[in-house]
Simulated assay, not measured.
Amino acid sequence: MEVTEQTPFQTRVENSFRRGLATYHGAARAQAAGAAQLIDCLTQVVGAPRLFPRVFEFGCGTGHLTEAFLAQYRVTNMWLNDLVADAETIVRAKVSETQVNLQFQAGPVETVLIPKDLDLILSGSTLQWVEDIPGLLNHLADHLAPGGLLVLSTFGEQQFTQLRALGSKSFAPSYTNADQLKHVLPASMVMRRIEQSPHDLYFPTTRDILRHLRDTGVNGRAQAPWSRRKLATFDQTYKTRFACQSGLPLTYDPVFMVAEKI
């Protein structure tokens, strides 16, 4: 395992996701649906089945995307990465029936050792946690072989719009819309497919919303616990501003892209 140094922000994010690791796979329904949609985008570009000899996935988490990808595509060697080292045991168990030669290393994707001449780089619901997206995309492109694919999902600027309207600053730093991703794609890459599909999840109470955020570990920038008064104010304000017939909405704004190294 490659030992890497982390920024204080990355350490907070790691701790948040580690606390939610046991509940993440079941609670992260938007991320699970997004993994399936990202693989559908890939299939529409390249078809399936197809062999990808060398694949790197960063931010693999509990394996939503890893499972969806390996269910459709054949892989010889696959390198997995996540900030949380404990994710390795979970994701290995989920792919134990495959014939893939699997390696794992923990740490920030910006600094872990990435193999060269990759056929595909894959990531689901992770790019929004990267503070320098153009820099990372250039770094990733350097590790792709000609014709290699960069297959990523992230979240756009409407992500958690209700919480942000109420002043929350505890979430990911780099929500990026589809048109913005087009402009930061490296010159060595050509966009093959990109789409953005905001939608709402609905919850019966604000406590359910907060539990969902905790169980998926996405409040990694939170600095302090909430007081009882703050919780009561949040509850009342959220209901007043956003309640509808379906319940209390929480917006997810996934962005999916497939780009090719030229």
Rank of each mutant, 00 (worst) to 15 (best):
E260N: 12
Q223L: 08
R19T: 07
L181A: 03
L144R: 00
Y202T: 04
Y24Q: 07
P134V: 08
Q72I: 11
L65D: 07
F171D: 05
Y252C: 06
V75Y: 08
D179H: 10
D208S: 02
P108I: 05
L113I: 11
I194T: 09
A87I: 01
G47N: 12
H212G: 02
Q6P: 05
G107Y: 02
N15S: 11
L42K: 00
F155T: 14
K182E: 13
V255T: 05
V13A: 03
A106K: 13
R241W: 15
D215H: 13
Q103S: 13
D40N: 07
L65N: 12
E5D: 12
A36R: 00
T161D: 10
P186K: 00
E5T: 14
V184H: 11
R229W: 10
A27G: 12
G61I: 07
S125M: 12
L150K: 01
A259K: 10
L149A: 02
S170Q: 15
Q245C: 13
L144P: 01
R29I: 08
G47A: 10
A27F: 07
S123T: 05
R12C: 08
T98Y: 00
N81E: 13
T205V: 03
N77C: 08
D119N: 14
A87R: 01
D117F: 10
I209D: 05
L213I: 11
